[in-house]
Each structure stands twice: as C-alpha cells, then as structure tokens.
Design a protein around this nucleic acid. Structure first.
Length: 325
DNA sequence: GACTATAATAGAA
DNA sequence: ATTCTATTATAGT
C-alpha cells in the first residue's frame, strides 16, 4: 500500500469534503414555559467560558455629534463563538412574521413586517415567579389573570446569559429581549426611534449583530423650523457596517433625538442572514403589550430549516406536538 | 471624465 | 413601525 501523500489527501478532500461538523451540540437541558411553542435548549456549555469573558474588546464612545451617546464594541462577543452563537439562535429560537394594520391619512393598510421577529420579557411592574407565573413586583403576589392582553414569555436561559454579561458591561439592567432575523438584503427596518414613553426619558438599549454584516444608519431628527432659524440642509446620516459579534449601546439623549434604520440592500448578502438582539427595559405594562403585539402578534410560528436553508412555517408541527401531549 | 447599469436614498401616500 | 417611485449616487468600463 503506497503512502497517501498530503497532496493526495488535499485532492481527495476537494472532491469529497469532510462532513460539516455541527457548529454546536444541543444541550439536553432546556428552558420551557407554557407560552413557548417548544422548549429552547440551554446555551451549549462550550459557549459559556468565552461568553463570560465578554466584552472581547473595550467599548469606544461615539459622542462627537449633537445629542448622540453611543458605546461601540467591535466586537463584544468573542470571535471564537460568534459564528456558532448565530447558528444556535437561528436554529433554536422560534420567529414570527407579524402583520398589523395602520391608519394612514384615513386609509387602512396592512403591513407585513419585513423581517422575522420574536420577543421575551415583561415590564418592571411584574416578574416571573419560580413557578413560571407572573407576579406583581410591588405586592409579590400573582398578577390578576387579566393584567395583560398578551402572554408574556420569560427570557430563556441562553439569552439570559447574554443579558447578564451585557448588563455588567453597560452598567444597566434590562427586562426585555427583542430578536430580529433579517433573511437577506430585502429584509429591513425603516427609520424610527425607540423613544416610547414606556422606556422612560433616556433609555439605554444594547443592540447586538450576529451573522451577515449589515449597514446601520443613524440620522438626527429634523430640527423644526422657527421664525429665528431658517431650515438647515439635513446632515448626512452616520453609517456603521455592523459585523458579527458587534454591540452598540445607545443611551442618554440618543433615542429622543436620533433615528436609526437597517435599510434594504441589493444582491450581495442575500442568503446569509443576520440576527439582531436588543436588550432594553420597559417600565410599565403598556410596553409589554406593545412589544408582544408588534414582535409576536397572532400569526404562524417560523423555524429555521437547515436542510432548506430558510425559515419555514412550523405551526403545523406545533399543533401536532400539542395533540400528542 | 463620460457613459451606462445598478444601488442607495428621499419623499409621498 | 412600510412601500412605492422618483431622484441621486456609485461603480464599472
């Protein structure tokens, strides 16, 4: 038997590449709650040490513009796990494609949210008791069943681990986790501010990027014209290309004065997919109702299909599992 | 720099 | 918190 040379091995592996090793092993322990379509695995244990060592780099302040206060981590999540963390969250979380109606100039239109979304958490007036039931934060007793129209979901262990290291680095506490999946350049979010009253006057929001890089645009809100000040030409938006593992903490006067967006993009990153995770703190009940209405809604459950490389409607499977119970 | 095709942006509804 | 379309910008040759 002649020796198999390195060159021969290289050629062989070119024609028959080694089986793709799984990016992570699914832990047997899972987070579960009656509001989940299915249990969510714990964070794979090999992710824990790298995650606890975060932030991977120190935060750079970006505050050289009026009313802007950002802290940018490039990256926050160690490179060694950012790719597999992306795969894990895309595969193991459930997502929604929310539809809602708005009234615009007297005409009602249906909006199909141009991205996949999901949300966990509850505002500060409630907390999840050890038994999984909502309790009143002040009275420490179970909440009235009609306190919420929606069904708040506890933050699963895997996202709570990330929340904890984020809180430590940001010097803030959070009670909500919103997750967005942008399947390709056609998924987007248009200019808006996270300036709802239920977040308080100077909300801190930590925003993570995983997977494919995407542009993130920020521009100052228009300054109203007044008799003493003529209308100024709008300054150019700031553009950040957010890569995997990056985190931007937006705080202080930022939300009150700036808009941000992830605009549609042609070609290029189609098929890669990007996950955005934001942590924030809702102070009152209205915040909970709002977030569940616009990020979960009442539609079908979607899950990543690794074979077909896309999100698929999982509602049928959910119904099947419910029948088995 | 000009010409063209494609992409990004801005405004209206 | 959107989409459509017109306009402007960018990239390739």
């Amino acid at each position: 038997m002649p020796k198999r040379t390195a060159a021969a091995a290289a050629i062989s592996s070119f024609f028959q590449p080694a089986l793709k090793k799984p990016k992570y092993e699914v832990p047997s322990e899972k987070s579960n709650h009656p509001t989940y379509p299915y249990p969510i695995p714990y964070l794979p244990t090999p992710f824990l040490d790298p995650l606890i060592s975060a932030p991977a780099t120190e935060g750079k302040p970006i505050n050289d513009q009026p009313d802007l206060d950002l802290l940018s981590f490039q990256p926050f999540i160690p490179k060694s796990i950012s790719d597999s963390l992306f795969e894990f969250l895309r595969q193991e979380l459930f997502y929604y494609r929310v539809q809602y109606k708005i009234n615009r100039f007297g005409t009602e239109t249906t909006i199909n949210t141009p991205r996949y979304t999901t949300v966990f958490g509850v505002d500060s007036t409630s907390f999840f008791n050890i038994d999984g039931k909502l309790h009143d934060s002040q009275l420490k007793v179970p909440c009235p069943l009609n306190k919420y129209k929606c069904k708040p979901r506890p933050i699963p262990q895997c996202l709570d681990m990330l929340k904890k290291v984020t809180e430590k680095a940001a010097g803030e506490t959070f009670n909500f986790c919103l997750v967005n999946y942008y399947a390709d350049g056609n998924d987007s979010i248009s200019y808006h501010s996270d300036d709802e009253k239920f977040l308080g006057p100077n909300p801190a929001i930590a925003s993570f990027s995983l997977g494919a890089p995407r542009d993130f645009l920020m521009k100052h809100k228009p300054i109203a014209a007044s008799p003493t000040h003529s209308i100024q030409p709008e300054p150019k938006p700031l553009k950040f290309n957010l890569g995997p593992g990056e985190m931007i903490l937006m705080r202080g006067p930022t939300q009150k004065n700036w808009l941000h967006s992830v605009p549609k993009r042609a070609g290029k990153e189609s098929g890669h997919g990007r996950i955005n995770i934001t942590f924030r703190k809702a102070l009152v009940r209205g915040g909970t109702e709002n977030y569940y209405q616009y990020n979960v809604g009442s539609g079908d459950v979607f899950r990543w299909d690794e074979g077909r490389k896309k999100m698929v409607d999982w509602t049928g499977e959910w119904a099947l599992e419910e029948r088995i119970k």
